[in-house]
Design a binder for these strands. Sequence first.
DNA 1: GCAAAAGTGTTAGGAGTACACCCATGC
DNA 2: GCATGGGTGTACTCCTAACACTTTTGC
Lengths: 224, 224
Amino acid sequence: MQTSNPLYKRQGIHAIASIFTVEDGVTKVLLVKRKNVPFKDMWALVGGAIYNNEDLLDGLKREIFEKTGIINIDTYFSGVFGKKDRSPVMRMVAITYIGVIDSKKVSFLKETLHTSNADWVPIDKIPKLAFDHNEIVSEALTSLREQIVNTDILKALFPDGFTLPEIQKVYESILGKKFDRRNFRKKILSIDLIQDTNKVRNFKGNKPAKVYKFKKSKQNKSVF
Amino acid sequence: MQTSNPLYKRQGIHAIASIFTVEDGVTKVLLVKRKNVPFKDMWALVGGAIYNNEDLLDGLKREIFEKTGIINIDTYFSGVFGKKDRSPVMRMVAITYIGVIDSKKVSFLKETLHTSNADWVPIDKIPKLAFDHNEIVSEALTSLREQIVNTDILKALFPDGFTLPEIQKVYESILGKKFDRRNFRKKILSIDLIQDTNKVRNFKGNKPAKVYKFKKSKQNKSVF
DNA sequence: GCAAAAGTGTTAGGAGTACACCCATGC
DNA sequence: GCATGGGTGTACTCCTAACACTTTTGC
């Protein structure tokens, strides 16, 4: 590869996260307000350019920390955005990820070196964002809907396990539809994603509910 | 973004294709032998660094043309490889794609400016490849197996349509398993991927077979 | 008419969907 | 004992999987 060739010069790699939460039945995404050009004072997803000395996920974690103060977030691959003009500064390819955290347990910084604000925004009220972040968050939501049935991405919402009625509400929020309690139970147990913990959780005045947790991995069901 | 920061400097983007064919029941991938460092004289997938003035798929098409002479190949997203040390030259992130062509109809160059050889290699006989291309082709094969039921990726094998027995053999080769003729027929027709053309194809001595073609698009079946 | 390959239908088991009643708890 | 919400089972339909015979053609 001719590294001197101007056709190759000044390229870079973005790692960008759509961080979701579910709050009282509403699915929200974490946005930050940019302090610097380009797209100064616009809302954006969390992320940024990765360094040469870090892998993609490490760079993403660093960016999330730098722009929100959040640590220890698990991220899952979502997609790639690489149109040649997607950044006005230089040629950047964006590798995009999704993650889920509990907005009630995780706090974030309202202002950082690079951001002047940060907030949870319902997914149906997302403003015009910097770069191609509107497209990215749209694809991220599709990825989220796929991955909640294939991965343990929701486990951050339930560090101490969950009851089936609790997690059913989360599925309903994210997928935007309601399920029959009995059928949801059969389905979610049949896809080999969660397991019983032999514990129960008491809510006052109600029958105690069994507590489940996510299994480590899940095989995707194939057509053939 | 501080473009002068050495942490960001000298990054680049690879677009890499695993081009498959199915020949007499054997699934093969197109490999080229590298003429230049790094990994001089090693076999590799087709691809290379993209230019600033081209989108990812355009750069991929150009690379495929430059290294094989092949034009007009449809490619489908496969994955991302971004480990910081995956290229010994500089920090490169690879966006990987898959494609399918008919080895009997498409010819390619055995030597180019960058390659000293090229050949179809059965997927169970792939040698040690340059860069992380062994990992890439492995994931590509998984993508291929997923996408033959979700996309029209196989259409390049059948520009004039196909009969069900013909395409069943291709599915069996790629998926590595055999299907009952009647059940395959029902299944492939039920997933809304192909359509009847009202034509038949005669093979000597046999009952004529109906000819089908791929539909434009296909919805992925969801769990919920 | 015979060989070769294509086309088709039926049955049984498993999964999905719709739907109603019982159970454990706090007060 | 009653209100609240959690847990469970059954019947019907649909999809899946196993399996054998008939049809068309070339020679």
